[in-house]
């Protein structure tokens, strides 16, 4: 069943076209990657799906309903959760407060305690840091917090924007492994990454954005084998 269906979406920043006629669909339970160079429109695509960037043309459907112009907080309440680029934890609130805010949406409140336990099991280090200000955590810990906070929102679709950005290689592995665990738990994942090699190991399918349009798409294996993708994004 199709969970997310983006159809011919265009986004403009002023006169500049950031996305034109982009279509993506993600089935329930899938993991899909969006690859591409800097400024290819990857972040804009996620912001459009979250409702942070206004859509000029096209439609976005989630779980069968059109949400193209639904405000961001209502999309979150339907289970469309994004971990933004640069993590964006609330630096002057405690780690626990950050996590509780993750379950702010109405649909996530009832089972918040349950999911807090799961999140802390997945990211045990956060438990020791619970009362610490989120801004005082290391980059890796902040990424863990951002992931845990997103889990608190009871995601049906979890969108991740560059989760490996600025992390040491060892931490990249750790983060990717946690994302895999979350996916195995049944959460549908849409991941934007520059680190194509790591990401393609994690996902079922992928697409490559270039200058705001879909350049190519296919299964993870096909993309990893494609000469074009290897040269441009895998550095091989």
């Amino acid at each position: 069943m199709t969970l997310l269906d983006v159809e011919d979406v265009a986004v403009y920043y002023g006169d500049m076209c950031a996305l034109s006629s982009v279509s993506v669909s993600v089935d329930e339970g899938e993991a899909v990657a969006v690859l591409g160079a800097n400024a290819a429109g990857k972040t804009t695509l996620l912001r459009a799906i979250s409702g942070l960037a206004p859509v000029a043309a096209g439609t976005i459907r989630f779980a069968g309903e059109t949400i193209t112009h639904v405000p961001p907080h209502e999309r979150v309440d339907r289970g469309l959760i994004q971990v933004p680029e640069g993590r964006l934890v609330f630096p002057f609130l405690s780690v626990f407060d950050n996590l509780r805010l993750g379950a702010y949406a109405q649909r996530a409140r009832a089972s918040a305690d349950e999911r807090l336990a799961f999140a802390l099991e997945l990211f045990p280090r956060l438990k020791d840091r619970g009362s610490q200000m989120a801004g005082s955590l290391s980059g890796g810990e902040q990424q863990m917090l951002a992931l845990a906070r997103a889990l608190m929102g009871q995601p049906r679709l979890l969108m991740l924007d560059e989760p490996s950005l600025g992390l040491a290689p060892l931490l990249v592995q750790e983060v990717m492994q946690r994302i895999d665990v979350i996916h195995q738990e049944g959460v549908t994942v849409l991941i934007v990454e520059q680190n194509a090699a790591q990401t393609l190991k994690l996902v079922d399918r992928g697409l490559v954005l270039e200058n705001g349009t879909v350049a190519t798409s296919g299964t993870a294996a096909d993309l990893a084998a494609s000469d074009e993708v290897r040269r441009a994004y895998l550095g091989i």
Partner: peptide, 8 residues
């Protein structure tokens, strides 16, 4: 933006 992504 992060607040909006929490459903606020």
């Amino acid at each position: 933006d992060a607040a909006a992504l929490m459903g606020i």
